[in-house]
Nucleic acid binder design. Structure first.
Length: 277
DNA sequence: AAGACGAAAGTGGTTGA
DNA sequence: TCAACAACTTTCGTCTT
């Protein structure tokens, strides 16, 4: 997906045809659709056709029709046979719903599903709302895939309020000992650099400034967009050719001028660069 | 006149008791 | 649940180009 305009450049590169190559792992020994974490039984279940006809298309006798009806019902029951499975089934449905509403890529959905499975295995759901933990799983996946600006958008499509999501998020973080890195300001640089019409060298300069800042650890607990804004302003001062006023960056990136000032001065200080006149 | 600067006061979110 | 706190915002007077 193009980082600037959101255009989908290439889609669905995976060959879903049967794969008979190897014998060493489960998925290579069977044909059919690939294993997925997004269905509670990983996509391995069987369906009984809803049509009351045999393989040749002839309709079944009424005795056989009612037999098939009973078989179908039992098949459905076994599919979600105990409480855990039903829990999972519901939660994965929620995850899928939110992911669709947010337009998340498939990889992020898979991550969220895996996280939720782990939470279930660790018995973290008992006594908590399924929806809260499911939302938090999405938030974790969001963060791990480096998608910027998550929580507000997430709580907009979630059925639980922001507070609960945050609480469950921290719970997952702690109990599953996930490595949550602070959001990376570099994720914002590319997009805004092109919106400001900056050249590549300016953009790289901004990223370089942020790299040393990260090394000196001044980026933690600061708004990543504010850091990106400061870096872009500083980079534009250091490079010839591009120019933008604080007011313009402030307007575009929704960060106050004052914050841009403090950020860019900190960034220059961290990089041992004197204020250019 | 435009842009940059920084002090002061206020806001919403996080943290630890 | 509450107070303390850091980050951030808004506003405004001053300085520089």
């Amino acid at each position: 997906v193009c980082e600037d305009c959101g255009l989908v450049v290439e889609e669905d590169r995976i060959d879903r045809g049967p794969d008979w190559r190897g014998f060493d792992d489960e998925s290579s020994q069977r044909g059919g659709r690939p294993l997925t974490e997004q269905l509670h039984d990983r996509g391995l279940s069987t369906d009984i056709d809803w049509r009351d006809s045999d393989a040749n298309g002839n309709t079944l006798s009424s005795a056989k029709q009612s037999k098939m009806k009973r078989l179908r019902r039992w098949n459905e029951r076994f599919r979600a046979k105990d409480a855990l499975d039903r829990n999972l089934k519901f939660a994965l449905g929620e995850i899928s719903r939110m992911a669709s509403a947010l337009g998340l890529p498939d990889a992020t959905r898979e991550t969220a599903s895996v996280i939720y499975r782990r939470a279930l295995e660790e018995d973290l759901i008992r006594g908590r709302s399924i929806e809260g933990v499911a939302s938090a799983a999405v938030a974790v996946a969001y963060r791990q895939h480096g998608v910027p600006h998550s929580l507000d958008e997430l709580s907009a499509v979630s059925r639980v309020d922001r507070q609960r999501i945050v609480r469950a998020f921290r719970l997952l973080n702690r109990e599953l000992s996930l490595e949550i890195t602070p959001p990376d300001p570099c994720n914002h640089v590319t997009r805004y650099a092109s919106e400001l019409g900056f050249s590549n060298s300016t953009e790289q300069r901004a990223n370089a400034l942020l790299e040393t800042a990260k090394a000196e650890n001044i980026h933690s607990s600061k708004n990543p967009i504010a850091l990106a804004a400061g870096a872009l302003y500083a980079a534009q001062l250091l490079e010839d050719g591009d120019h933008a006023t604080q007011a313009r960056i402030s307007d575009l990136m929704d960060i106050s001028e004052v914050t841009i000032r403090t950020r860019y001065q900190q960034l220059l200080a961290a990089n041992d660069i004197p204020l250019p006149r």
